[in-house]
Computed example of a mutant assay.
Amino acid sequence: MNADRLPGTAVGGVPSPPPGLVVVGHFDQCPGYRVERPRGSDSWLFTWTTGGQGALRQGRAETRADPGQLVALAPGVRQSYGVAPGARNWRFWWAHCRARPGWSSWLRTYGAGDGVYVVGPVPAGLHGRVESAYRRMLADARWTGAEAPPVSIPADDRVAVAHGTAARELALCALEEVVLLSAAAARTPAPPPGVDARVRRAQELIAADPGAPHTVRSLAAAVALSPSRFAHLFTEQAGRSPMRELREARLLHAARLLESTDLSVERVAAASGFASPFHFNRVFHERHGTPPGAFRARHR
């Protein structure tokens, strides 16, 4: 399959790949290449640019994709992307899939609005490893489960669809490496103007160990504020209370454990900082729309 056979406009009977599939490819497009999805995509799109420049728009958010940048577009929002105006080409790796829940916490820092995440620039020393992970993803997507996965891909192999369960999981593991490497090593965007350093520090403490027994008092002490002053400042600047921020971080951590480990639901609850499994089940269901056990079955 090559780009010439793909639709320029994805509407009606020509939708984006369904979220249950993992589709990966590598394109080198000339000026004029553009994809429009007025209804948005049904799955996440992850692009890694290796040459030229791309232009992506989703909702009201716009960004340019430069070499060494990972750009992720969440599903469900009107989107368009193509070769940037004035650029000679756009050479990039891409993947459509359902994102693993744990990736949200890695991408959150790089949110540009309307489900757009711009991760980068990633240090040049990691570019080869990120591209290698995408190449492995393309090869693993073709694994049939009968022999060993292919160790290389033909030069003209540009698009692959992972149909089997094992092939999908291997491909997602390679993409997870891309997301983790990029998000961990990229230059963190400057915080919004006016955000107090003590609020940022408290957010970092929560994100670093959501399962710890954090309280308003302990977080306030860590940033040298009184509990009442800290709670007011945090809520004012973060848009939600410290305990709400903590609960969201714990639920994300729990989702990651359910997806990637065989720990019982009770142990996942305890490891994520929830004292009561009953309370954990209730708030997890409220947040994700399904009980923890059903969530694990669906995502594994």
Rank of each mutant, 00 (worst) to 15 (best):
T290M: 11
A184V: 12
G102D: 12
L205T: 11
W44S: 04
W44Q: 03
P123F: 02
Q79Y: 01
A197L: 10
H285M: 04
E177G: 00
V83F: 00
F92V: 07
E204C: 03
T215V: 00
A87F: 07
A221G: 14
G32R: 10
A133G: 11
R108D: 15
A183M: 01
G68K: 02
G113F: 07
L180N: 10
I153C: 02
A269D: 07
V23Y: 08
L251M: 10
E236D: 14
G40S: 03
A185Y: 08
G273W: 03
P19K: 06
G12W: 12
R250D: 04
V199I: 02
P154K: 10
R244N: 13
P189V: 12
F295Q: 00
G125Q: 10
R198P: 11
A133M: 14
R60K: 12
A186K: 00
T165A: 14
T144E: 15
A3V: 10
R64F: 10
A185E: 13
Q58V: 01
V35N: 04
R91P: 02
S41M: 11
A65C: 15
L257S: 00
H288S: 06
G211A: 07
M137V: 14
Q69I: 09
L70M: 01
P17R: 06
V265H: 11
E236W: 12
D28F: 05
A269N: 03
L258H: 07
S272L: 04
